[in-house]
Amino acid sequence: MTERTQLNVNISPELLKVLKQNAIKSGLTLAKYVTKLIQAYVSNEDLIEEGTLVDKRIDSMESQLNEIAEKLNNFNNIISENSYKEEKEGIPVEAISPRVAFIPKKPSTGDVKKIGKLIAQHFKNIQRAEVLSAKEAWQLFKDQESIKLIKEEHLTVILDVLRGEKILSFGDIQTLGFKYGRCPVMTAFRTMSDLPIESELSQIKNEAEMYLAHLASKQNKKFEMSV
């Protein structure tokens, strides 16, 4: 017996009109567009309501902010202690043991490589969550304010990393960070979708940015950590 491949569903005229408009914008037939929507919904087991996505994003941001605040507080305490020693004992801050001074750890090659893989995966997750083709997702990415001023040569590097065709290096991170004063990729992710950043990516990204901020201060450059 031939399997049935046709599904008859009654929907409101208003919904049908919206579906037709979206199908035209996507360059698809109505049937293909609806099929694509259903496939995306069925295959994405982690699909949740928008309100829950927002809540998760807020929780993720709060967690990151608390972590950053704790590190900055520790840093300020160390600076205060060092300044006190210098004032009372006449010991220059530079002479204090490196184990006492707070210096962020430089991310290893493996850590940077993992960052590249995780941001590429997050880009794909956004593409799936927003029901976009690869081309549409890249265009949406380029439309973000943090990306509009990015030079073409740097966009090429970002695109290659997001495609998984290039292994991210610390030099890439430093170049983008110092050139644009922050990580343009993470900023774009925040504005192009409500999809929360995975905790693993947030943590490893924060550690790398802490080191970049440390380097920037030493080289009299501007760098802001992404939230």
Rank of each mutant, 00 (worst) to 15 (best):
D143G: 03
K113W: 07
T35W: 02
L118W: 06
I38F: 08
P184T: 05
L47C: 06
R163W: 00
F141D: 01
L159R: 14
A23C: 11
F102N: 14
K20V: 09
F141E: 04
Y84R: 08
L155M: 12
A213Q: 15
L149Y: 14
H122I: 01
I78D: 01
N125V: 01
L65Y: 13
M186N: 09
R190Q: 15
D194V: 15
I147V: 14
N8R: 11
I115S: 04
P92Q: 04
E145P: 13
A23R: 11
A23V: 12
D111T: 11
I115D: 05
E198K: 15
K135P: 02
L53Q: 05
I38K: 04
T35K: 12
L37M: 09
F223Q: 03
L176F: 05
K105A: 08
G164V: 01
K25D: 15
Y211D: 01
A31T: 15
L53D: 02
Q219W: 03
V100T: 15
E136A: 13
K179A: 12
D59L: 12
T187H: 09
A120H: 01
S80N: 09
P196R: 04
I103E: 12
A31R: 14
P98Q: 10
N44A: 06
L195N: 09
E153D: 12
R163K: 08
D46K: 15
L176Q: 01
D46F: 11
E87P: 00
E3P: 01
L132W: 05
K135T: 13
I68V: 12
V93A: 09
S83W: 05
G177H: 02
M210P: 00
G51N: 02
T156E: 13
G51W: 00
A31N: 15
F141H: 03
V157R: 06
L155G: 01
Y180K: 06
F223D: 01
I91R: 06
I58H: 07
N206V: 04
L159G: 00
E94K: 15
S133G: 06
K105G: 03
M192V: 07
A213N: 11
T175I: 09
H154T: 04
A134S: 14
N76D: 13
K142M: 12
K166H: 08
K205S: 14
P104L: 05
L15Y: 06
K135L: 09
E45R: 15
G27Q: 06
N66G: 10
E224P: 00
P92D: 04
D111F: 02
H214D: 13
E152Y: 08
P107E: 07
A95I: 08
E50V: 05
L30D: 05
Y84I: 07
L201N: 01
I115T: 06
I48S: 12
E136F: 03
K151R: 14
N82V: 14
Q174V: 10
S80G: 04
E87Y: 01
R182G: 06
I58G: 03
L16H: 05
E130A: 03
Q174F: 09
F178V: 06
S12Q: 10
A208C: 09
A101V: 11
N8W: 01
G177D: 03
R4G: 03
A129R: 14
L195E: 14
S83M: 12
Q6R: 14
D160E: 15
S83Y: 09
V54R: 14
S169L: 11
R163G: 01
E87F: 03
K32Y: 06
P13Q: 07
